[in-house]
Amino acid sequence: MVSYDDLRLATGNFNQENLLGKGSFGSVYKGNLREGSPIAVKVLDVERTGSWKSFLAECAALRSVRHRNLVKLITSCSSIDFKNMEFLALVYEFMSNGSLEDWIRGKRRHTNGDGLNIVERLNVAIDVACVVNYLHHENGAQVVHCDLKPSNILLDEDMTAKVGDFGLAKLLISRTRDQSSISSTRGVKGSVGYIPPEYGLGEKPSTAGDVYSYGITLLELFTGKTPTDEIFTGGSSLKEWVKMAFPASIEQVLDQDLLPNKGSLCHEGKSISPEAQHDCLIALLGVGLSCTVDSPNGRISMSDALCKLKSSRDMLLKFDLFISIYIKLLYICCIYMNLSGGFLCK
């Protein structure tokens, strides 16, 4: 564990200039440990009901899992502050490219002014699906995150997406008989707009609930619209809005930065045609809709979603790769024919 004084020093006495944001159970500050390592310090609001449960749930969930797409928990602090009040904090690796929410809202952009393109967004979606699939199906103890949303998805310096904020996490089914399950909070778990409908009816947290939250996040990632946007009034919602345009009129709901009619996209030296982008976007929105079916039993699993997303990426990149190879071969053929006195390219 790290001491309160260490964290106070690392964050400049929790200076507001180092405040990265506020979550459901506390504030997050940027800091630097004495050895110079950048960190993110999540200080829990101990006066809020459930803060201790959140602290214990996050520690328990992250202690039981290891994955490249999880924000790394470095250490924790349970101490007394300078006012002699209880102090709880979690220390994480610092994610230099902020949250996915910031990128969707346009608060962060690349140095050239561009937002996230279709490939970058698809890579983020796959990163998140990978770790959620791990939590649900590949970890020793099945973990449900309970609060998947763009603000809880962070990006490192390489734009690798990592999931954080396990304050609502629930350890569900242990692979060993002697390990009991834990629950971290009371009442409905999650954030407005991302909570699956069955939770409002009293159903317990489940992997299908995470799939729903992931699906809403996926739709938001490619439409740029939050589920709580003011355009969704009455009986309308993000998923119903997308469903009405799917698949024939998806241009009406896409984030403006993703409209295929803007022309070919260059990715790692390869050109991706508008047609390939359009077909991929239809597939991606289809995955989002499959994840957000009202009935938990009607939703696809996270492993199915991950498989579909990877296939979409393969098709997006390989389709134009084949075209690129064909053009290069044709070009070489033309050069050869010219050198040999042929007439093909004259």
Rank of each mutant, 00 (worst) to 15 (best):
I327D: 10
S3F: 02
D178L: 02
D158W: 14
V128P: 02
R105S: 09
R48I: 15
S37Y: 08
K262I: 06
D45K: 12
C59M: 11
K189L: 06
D158P: 00
L172E: 03
L284T: 07
H110Q: 05
V119Y: 02
I327M: 09
L154P: 01
H137I: 05
D255E: 08
P38W: 05
V46K: 12
D257N: 02
F14T: 04
T207N: 14
R8A: 00
I74W: 02
S340C: 08
G342L: 09
L135T: 10
I216Q: 12
G167I: 06
I153D: 00
L33V: 03
V124D: 07
K149N: 07
I39H: 00
I325H: 12
S79C: 01
F343A: 04
N97K: 12
Q142I: 07
E230I: 15
D165V: 00
L116K: 03
Q179K: 03
S3H: 02
S96T: 03
D178Q: 03
L281H: 09
R121L: 07
H67E: 15
G50T: 14
Q142K: 13
N261S: 14
C333Q: 11
L238I: 09
N97M: 09
W103G: 05
P196V: 14
N97L: 06
G263Y: 10
F166A: 02
N297F: 13
G209C: 11
W241S: 15
K22A: 15
Y214S: 11
H145E: 13
M337R: 14
S76V: 10
S301E: 09
G215Q: 13
I231E: 08
G113S: 04
I118T: 13
L339K: 12
S24A: 13
V131E: 14
V28M: 02
T176C: 00
D320A: 06
E35W: 01
D114T: 10
G167R: 05
F222P: 06
S249E: 04
S295Y: 14
A89M: 06
G341R: 09
F246E: 01
S174V: 02
K170T: 11
G298L: 13
C59Y: 08
D314T: 04
R299P: 04
L309K: 02
L62R: 06
G23M: 06
F343I: 07
P196E: 09
G263I: 04
C307V: 11
P274Q: 06
V91Q: 03
V71W: 00
L44M: 12
